[in-house]
Computed example of a mutant assay.
Amino acid sequence: MGKSIQALLRNGLAWLLSLLMFVPLLLIVINSLKDQVQAGSMGMDLPDRLHWSNYAVVIEQGKLLQSFFNSLLYSGASTVLGIALSAVAAYIFARNATKLHRFFYFFIILGIAMPVNFVTLTKVMQFTHLNNTQLGIIILLAVHSIPFTVFLIYGFIGTVPRELDEAGIMDGCPPFKLFFLIVLPLLKPVVVTVGILNFMGAWNDFVHSLYYLNSSDKWPMTLAVYNFFGRYQVNWNLVSADIVLTTLPVILIYLMGQRYIIAGMTSGAVKG
């Protein structure tokens, strides 16, 4: 009986915390459907009439379609590039545990905690002529995701039997073919996990785009929202609609991939 009460209390607390986290999103959604006057107070009261036209105004005035495809390009390309580089590096570090490889592994994962030196990074971007280019943002986001991705994949590779590598080598399989055709498919849970997390991180990135993109036609959605807020900060209904449209893709991707995230985070420990 005592355990049932404890489980009920834990579930109740979890539901309460979930509702508290949901309140800000609900506040934004409600105010995105109000007129300018009613949304001025940013209250939780329901609108007198649903103003769906707010979303049409935001899409047209905020150039959200263009910024949406920019965000999709930056997030998708940087995620694929980051995972490709990180998976190969993690595989080499895990399968050849020499002192040099361990040094490089710990050196790379230090990037999880170390802050970015934007002065030096700006000099590098200027020297490589990647400033104000879409390729530059893709490379920046990919490199930024490498430490965390290497850390997760490295731990998961230990669960893949070495006998598969040996069997592939005995069959005359080249190293890269061995990795991409035999080992990489077995890493699907962790690859999908880091893919979703890195995609959401790149989608929500604001600082890199703010510093290194000057042309408005190259802005992602986060920067478009920032610019839109500066122009329409008194129109909280439009600002709220802009925020909803920006966060909706991330929420949908997370909801579709949450089971992969949980599986990827736990499968390594279960198999070990």
Rank of each mutant, 00 (worst) to 15 (best):
N11K: 11
N11E: 08
G12Y: 03
W15S: 12
L20A: 15
M21G: 13
M21I: 10
L26W: 09
L27H: 09
I28Y: 00
V29Y: 00
K34F: 14
Q36T: 14
Q36F: 10
Q38N: 08
S41L: 03
D48P: 02
F68Q: 07
L72H: 06
L73Y: 10
A77Q: 00
S78T: 01
S78K: 00
I83M: 07
V88L: 09
A89P: 01
A94L: 02
A97D: 07
T98S: 14
K99G: 14
F103M: 13
F104W: 14
Y105P: 15
Y105V: 10
F107Q: 09
G111C: 07
G111M: 03
T120H: 08
L121V: 12
V124Q: 15
F127Q: 02
T133W: 11
Q134E: 07
I137K: 03
I138L: 05
S145T: 14
I157R: 12
D165E: 03
A167D: 12
D171W: 05
G172L: 11
C173S: 15
P175S: 09
L178R: 11
L178H: 06
V183K: 07
V183Q: 10
L184R: 03
L186V: 02
L187C: 10
P189Q: 04
V190W: 00
T193V: 04
I196V: 08
W203Q: 06
H208E: 11
H208W: 05
H208K: 15
Y212T: 04
Y212V: 02
L213G: 01
S216L: 00
K218V: 04
W219C: 15
L223G: 04
A224I: 06
Y226R: 02
Y226G: 01
F228V: 15
F229S: 01
R231H: 05
R231K: 09
D242K: 09
I243M: 09
V244F: 09
L248I: 04
V250Q: 10
Y254W: 12
L255H: 06
R259K: 11
G268R: 05
